[in-house]
Simulated scan of single mutants.
Amino acid sequence: MSKVAFLVASEGIERVELTDPWQAVKDAGHEPVLLSPEPGEVQTFDHLDKAATQAVDVVVSDAAVGDYAALVLPGGVANPDALRLDEDAVGFVKEFMGSGKPVAAICHAPWTLIEADVVRGKRLTSWPSLQTDIRNAGGEWVDEEVVTSDNLITSRKPDDIPAFNKAVVAALAG
């Protein structure tokens, strides 16, 4: 059983983009671990409405890339926008991408990848409003359900979660 890091800010996380991949990773026999810049709990949302909270397992500044087999970045508009302002979170994402291990990002989560300067030369998808940001950062944006480019897995929105989960679990299986 390997550990899979889920990195989120303290609020603004799209609930299903955290809980559904979390369950898929768990069902595949891996241990999901919630990382965040702050200890305590994180607040998820169903679009703009508050949903459940979830306890943080590890503060990202205390996390080591070597402890995890993969990294999942859930979306929600406010979540990656807050993460990209946190140096430890951005550094962790940059180091993880450099490790060659799977990194999976859905919806607005590629904003954190852009901040980490790791999309250049990659083919990826996201929520449509990020396409200009991705292109400006040197990535190739495409409108597809799930895209794998080297160690990066991306999807556009909650409707893509089944394909996203399948790609994440397949990457963990090798």
Rank of each mutant, 00 (worst) to 15 (best):
P158K: 05
W111K: 01
P80W: 08
A163I: 09
T132R: 03
P110Y: 04
W111F: 06
L152V: 06
P110N: 03
A167E: 15
G98L: 12
T132H: 07
V77K: 05
A173L: 04
P158M: 02
I114K: 06
S126A: 13
A171R: 00
A116I: 03
N79M: 02
M1H: 07
V4H: 02
W141S: 11
K122A: 01
Q131F: 00
C107Y: 01
L124A: 10
V93H: 01
G91N: 06
A5Y: 07
H47I: 14
D49Q: 14
P32K: 08
A5Q: 13
T44G: 14
S99F: 06
G29E: 08
V118E: 08
V142W: 06
E140I: 14
K157V: 14
A9N: 12
L124S: 13
V168W: 02
E11G: 12
K3W: 01
P80Q: 08
W111Q: 10
P39A: 14
L7C: 03
V56Y: 03
S2C: 04
A89E: 09
G12L: 03
I161E: 09
A78W: 01
S36F: 06
D86H: 03
A51H: 07
D27M: 06
E115Y: 00
V65W: 06
C107I: 11
A24S: 09
V90K: 14
E95C: 00
V168G: 09
